[in-house]
Design a protein around this nucleic acid. Structure first.
Lengths: 338, 338
DNA sequence: CTGAAAGCGCTTACAG
DNA sequence: CTGAAAGCGCTTACAG
């Protein structure tokens, strides 16, 4: 059960009204900056409020007017800086617009995710920004429809369905990266890391398409699955270096996978860039300062979060707007690694 | 002004009561799992609630009983994985205890911080976990006292004052790291990165004490100030390598500073560990997979967040408990870099 | 064991 | 321009 705390009785508009010798309604009006109240009266009310240390009770106000300025945002992998940056972008935009965020970290657990969603509903969130846990049923957006609370899905697509979405063009991004590797002379190019999830399939497709375009036969041996994290990237690279004939380049599922791969390369005394070409995906801020700095596909994580927030706010303002799909346009960001 | 959204009229306990042919009070009772209601009746009520798609209005309930299960947490630098991990720990513990978190990213702006604090107050947060923005007045905890809302300060101390605090033993951690460097034969040891803030002073002191203990004269030229980030670490290391005679080792203000330093080392064709010994501070999860893996002072970021949350919950449960101070015990985590 | 009533702190027509 | 009254959805003594 939810824990609770009691507070000392606060000063309310009632007390302010008394102090200023007006009615509660008048106080409420001036608090809302209504022009209906005479300046002189308004000033008296404000002074009384200040004198008594009045603090607005937003919960009471929102209950009465059936509104809310809280937005639920659920993130599933805060350990990945990509999501931390996404969250920062979301929060920045929302806060600037006067919202406050109810944040939950579902840790890739669909069950935990379900619970926080329910909790956000009970708290009357005005909208929800969801970056779905791996394994989230595709029906989720549809299930939330009757809740009547605006939703935008971020980063991980949930298949066809009439929900707003903000993500990146995964296929195109990886295609560009792979093609760059081909253009710089590589033939044995691995696809490193990742394993499941909507983004994985799209990125892998980009890899295959670029290969096909260059008439390089697809070799399943070169797609090395691994946990989509640093450890996974490290393992994946270690395995890659044992393949015979050895690949000379790789595009990674995401930046942190690439960081792990950088570590593995270092362990073998190999230098990314010189001895092995490596490209990541996301362009988290760390990428500019890794050893060596990572070439990557830039999808502007923070900006993506801002766009998602903007889409949600648009949906809230106008529930009937047509379906919004924002796909960050990937840009190849070449640094030292590839 | 805060934006707002209207919702369709929801089904309330009133409707459930009608459907189940009981009074509102009875419905409320069964919703709370009270043993005062006959099983048969309770079951009928639950069925009615389910049938009508009733959803509990927590706001209304909390307004009535003057309680809250929302905890405000303000983080100031989400771009630093240390804080992201801290946040994840906080959230994990809080959610498991039935709370939901109101999260804000003040981005090191005391003004922004002030606004979100105010907003959390208006929303009746049951408690606040604050990792203060750089430049936060030391009087802040004292100013919040009359708010009557439990507060625990995290990571960055705000000087003397009667507030709960969860952080790490900075001085001790850096002393251990410096001493390790001394013990492995280094004499010219730099202190890299950081510039201001409470943690900076403490860490620098640890460095000086370790030097003093080893009878190595302190050389101000070897403390290289820089932004406490990756870029700063990179610059700082570049500058360090130009010092004559050149230092052979460094302890860094934090892990991301060390990551930047790793990059700078790589640019010069130097290998951390072999050519230059480097130790970080925090032990963020990336540290295990950097190139090369980073030796660092482990203060268990996630755990620290959990402890802070636990302290807050203890304070909420018992407002009169004596002052709580949790200092993570640092452990030297030796990997490849130093 | 269950119901009628008051009240949490606000807003919002509606009179005047 | 200002006040009295009803009501948002719940909980909680208090009767019965």
């Amino acid at each position: 059960m939810a824990p609770s705390v009691r507070y000392p009785r606060p000063v309310t508009i009632h007390h302010v009204a008394e102090e200023a010798s007006v009615s509660k309604s008048t106080v409420s009006l001036v608090l809302q900056g209504s022009p209906l109240v005479r300046d002189e009266t308004a000033e008296r009310v404000r002074e009384a409020a200040h004198k008594l240390g009045y603090v607005y009770n937003r919960r009471a106000a929102e209950l009465r007017r059936q509104s809310s300025n809280m937005i639920g945002v659920v993130i599933n992998d805060l350990m990945n800086p990509f999501f931390a940056e996404l969250l920062a972008g979301v929060e920045r935009r929302l806060m600037d617009a006067g919202y406050i965020v109810l944040m939950a970290h579902a840790q890739e657990s669909p069950d935990r995710q379900r619970r926080v969603l329910q909790s956000m509903r009970e708290h009357h969130a005005a909208g929800i920004l969801l970056c779905p846990a791996l394994g989230t049923p595709r029906s989720l957006p549809h299930e939330l429809l009757p809740w009547g609370i605006p939703l935008v899905v971020m980063v991980r697509s949930l298949g066809a369905g009439a929900y707003d979405y903000a993500g990146s063009d995964n296929e195109c991004g990886v295609r560009m990266a792979t093609r760059h590797l081909v253009d710089t002379g590589h033939r044995r190019i691995a696809f490193l890391g990742g394993r499941t999830g909507p983004a994985y399939a799209e990125r892998l497709r980009g890899y295959r398409k670029a290969l096909a375009a260059a008439r390089i036969p697809f070799d399943p041996q070169l797609v090395i699955e691994a946990d989509p994290g640093r450890g996974g990237g490290r393992d994946a690279m270690a395995r890659t270096l044992r393949i015979d004939p050895r690949p000379t380049a790789a595009v990674c599922y995401n930046d942190i996978t690439a960081f792990g791969a950088l570590a593995a390369l270092g362990e073998q005394g190999l230098r990314a860039g010189a001895d092995f070409a490596l490209i990541g995906f996301d362009n988290v801020s760390d990428a500019a300062h890794s050893n060596p700095p990572l070439s990557t596909v830039d999808i502007h994580p923070g900006d993506l979060g801002e766009q998602a927030a903007a889409a949600l706010m648009a949906r809230i303002a106008q529930p009937s707007v047509e379906r919004q799909i924002y796909l960050a346009k990937p840009r190849l960001m070449l640094r030292r690694s590839g």
